[in-house]
């Protein structure tokens, strides 16, 4: 693989590294194209996405685009504009298109093969491995940070459709905090029916843009109008406002959203009622009493 930066390039503040996370979940795309109201298939989506990748590369000759697919059973790199230049010399549009398509086809086939075993599980609510793809994107961005004092401004764009996988919560939050620490905004474009709580939080915490397009047929316009703008230009533009994010927690016992609850001091599990014993870590709460600290407060005041 060619090294990332051959002799020092002049990176101005509008040069971007855009890591696009692509949801290739066949269950999601299957249901989306089958619904009568919306006829939007994966190939139609690619018709919007690939021109968008090209236009990003056109915006600035130093712009750098990386595509990562998040499938049902695996995640993988699909396209990297830095290495693509090295292999065929010129950046021809058909070459970009065919490379993305062929690698994507490979990936989807492999993903299907890998996932064979446990796809018997509830297919309707099958989530894609968003946490893995996000982790890969962040690792790649760290490599760009390491490449030298000057580097393109990185950001992540998530094109997500499938529902959130609750089992990924901790991993996704870890990745979001890491992105926040390295000041990488996570933009998200939700293609599915419902809002994604993961992506809302990701964009809110990292200062990215969250958008759920009304008209999927106009996806390319949404892409170019909102997600193509570099971080420098965003300060001058009126982009979609951050939506109010619900930061209330849901309890571990009934999965209800609560605004007041009990938290285990050992493992931070959340419960809606006072329990005798923590169901997660097994701590015994019988000798302590939660009212104790309230009394302390009173005596202090």
């Amino acid at each position: 693989m060619a090294s990332l930066v051959p002799p020092p390039k002049l990176y101005t503040d509008d040069v971007s590294l855009i890591v696009i996370i692509l949801d290739t979940n066949p269950f999601f795309w299957g249901t989306l194209s089958n619904t009568s109201a919306l006829t939007f298939s994966f190939s139609k989506f690619l018709n919007h996405m690939i021109p968008f990748v090209n236009s990003l590369l056109l915006l600035n000759q130093l712009n750098h685009v990386v595509l990562i697919a998040s499938g049902v059973a695996s995640c993988g790199y699909i396209y990297d504009s830095a290495t693509a230049v090295a292999s065929d010399g010129g950046q021809k549009v058909p070459a970009v298109c065919s490379e993305i398509l062929s690698r994507l086809e490979e990936f989807v086939a492999k993903d299907q093969r890998l996932g064979k075993g446990d796809l018997r599980t509830v297919a309707g609510s099958m989530s894609s491995l968003f946490s893995g793809a996000l982790s890969l994107a962040l690792c790649y961005i760290q490599r760009v940070f390491r490449s030298g004092m000057q580097h393109p401004q990185p950001r992540i764009l998530c094109l997500q459709g499938s529902p959130d996988g609750p089992e990924q919560y901790v991993a996704v939050m870890n990745a979001i905090f890491s992105a926040q620490r390295s000041m990488v905004p996570i933009d998200s474009c939700v293609l599915g029916m419902q809002h994604s709580a993961f992506l809302q939080q990701a964009s809110y915490i990292t200062g990215g843009v969250y958008l759920k397009p009304q008209q999927l047929d106009g996806l390319f316009e949404y892409f170019t109008a909102v997600f193509a703008t570099d971080l420098q230009s965003r300060t001058f533009l009126e982009l979609p406002r951050p939506v109010g994010v619900d930061f209330r927690a849901s309890c571990f016992c009934h999965k209800k959203t609560i605004d007041m609850g009990y938290v285990c001091s050992v493992c931070l599990s959340i419960f809606c009622k006072h329990h005798k014993k923590c169901s997660t870590c097994g701590s015994d709460f019988s000798h302590g009493h939660s009212e104790l600290d309230r009394k302390r407060k009173h005596s202090e005041v």
């Binding site: 890998l114 075993g117 491995l129 946490s131 893995g132 919560y169 901790v170 991993a171 870890n174």
Partner: peptide, 29 residues
Amino acid sequence: DCDMYIHESLHNCPGCESQRESRSYDAKA
């Protein structure tokens, strides 16, 4: 470099997260 980043900042193994089986957070849910 990734090893350091994963353990010091990310706290996820990208490899394990990119697999369906043997998820380390099963106990959590």
